[in-house]
Write a protein that binds this DNA or RNA. Structure first.
Lengths: 90, 90
DNA sequence: CCATTATTTAGATAGTTAGTTAATTAAGCA
DNA sequence: TGCTTAATTAACTAACTATCTAAATAATGG
């Protein structure tokens, strides 16, 4: 849960997830969308991978990234629980 | 959305929210649950307040904090959207 | 009033994060 | 084989974060 929220904290990483929601993309394609160096993007992708929010597979020189949503269940459940009980109380 | 995810990133702050989910608590009561100084707790509470995840009201010497859940709608919607489209693709 | 209690503000600091450039790895191709 | 392209790793650094102690603010109770 810690890695997940850590990954979601950064706007660049959230934008990457939104992009991957539409279609799988290579590291290069993702990088094109941001005004920062390739290593920076690589850093963000690595962090997302550690949080299990994306997976990657290599084909030739390219590395394609895909969104992985299963780990989001945890955070979703946590948030829903917070909201539910929050309503009950007041 | 940035402030929200920033606030949720820290485990101490998430724990505070979980505590406030059960009942309203004063700063002191919250502080008792953590092995850190009162100013540190105050810092976290301030951050949560800025993210609009908690509200506070003063009565006498005490300041009571309450969970505020409305701002969670945004993050919830964002996560759900990510999961929905993520499923559609594969 | 004065001492005590609850909380916050101020100032300092160690550790983390997000970015950079340079170097490395690995695949494709003429 | 050697050059080019895609991506990552390494080394560095500015800015940010979470903590601390000390000081300030403000309400309570004698």
């Amino acid at each position: 849960m810690n890695l997940l929220f850590k990954a979601l904290r950064d706007p660049t990483r959230r934008r990457i997830l939104e992009m991957l929601k539409e279609r799988d993309l290579t590291a290069g394609q993702i990088g094109e969308a941001f005004p920062m160096s390739a290593p920076s993007i690589s850093y963000h992708l690595d962090l997302l991978r550690h949080a299990q929010l994306v997976s990657s597979r290599k084909h030739g020189q390219f590395v394609t990234y895909s969104l992985e949503t299963t780990v989001l269940d945890d955070s979703l459940g946590w948030l829903l629980d917070l909201m539910k009980k929050g309503k009950k109380q007041k």
